[in-house]
């Protein structure tokens, strides 16, 4: 063992410089050219930064499209899912309560038309997206709260829908923050 100890220590120090020092600095340097300069991409509204494009935030007002439920209440200092098992009785009660809340705010919607993602918590607690169906189902409520035509809102949702990658791979998504910014900017 002794024969190998000194080479081990020396090689470790050299590799620390290369792998933990030079490598991340090199990536940080090149990432200065990336969108957001490697610090995350922000979204601006009325000249003010209102959030990060990829970090979901809490929307509970009737006049905004709601985000998904979050186990950490959209506090992006941390992150977390509920880790509830599919058959956990407490969890199923929470889902039922969320369903009732949603129905109370959206009287035109039938229970069978609520997409599951609107009553289940995301993995990160910071999910910035909805599926198009989960945005459509909220149009009637937002239209009523803002006194706008539902058709106009549907167009807005469609304009903010990101199609699957190359039109073939993965799900379609709607970024809730960008959609709500576009909504506020709509006159």
């Amino acid at each position: 063992m002794k024969k190998y100890l000194l080479p081990s220590v020396k090689l470790t120090v050299l590799l620390l410089v290369l792998l933990a020092g030079i490598y991340p600095l090199f990536i940080a340097g090149i990432a200065k050219m990336a969108p957001g300069k490697g610090g995350g991409v922000t979204v601006t509204h009325n000249g003010k930064v209102v959030g990060y494009e990829n970090i979901g935030q809490k929307f509970t007002d009737d006049k905004y499209f709601w985000s998904r439920p979050s186990a950490v209440d959209y506090n992006a200092a941390g992150s977390g899912g509920s880790n509830k098992a599919p058959g956990n009785p407490d969890y199923l009660k929470t889902v039922a309560e969320r369903t009732d809340t949603f129905l109370a705010h959206n009287p035109d919607v039938k229970k069978a038309d609520i997409p599951a993602e609107l009553v289940t918590a995301s993995a990160s607690g910071l999910d910035p997206h909805l599926s198009p169906a989960a945005a459509y189902v909220q149009i009637a409520r937002v239209a009523k709260a803002r006194g706008m035509a539902p058709e106009k809102l549907k167009q807005l949702v469609d304009a903010n829908t990101q199609a699957p990658m190359l039109g073939m791979f993965g799900p379609s998504t709607v970024n809730v923050l960008k959609l709500n910014v576009a909504l506020d900017e709509l006159k």
Binding site: P86, V95, K111, I114, P115, T120, S122, D127, T173
Partner: peptide
Amino acid sequence: GNPAIAHMGIQQATGAMEGKEVRFGPAA
């Protein structure tokens, strides 16, 4: 999707979504 949630009468067109992200979905 989750049979317990289906039993409550909620549709799961996007599969079991508890602890999942919309941009990946259940298949991925």
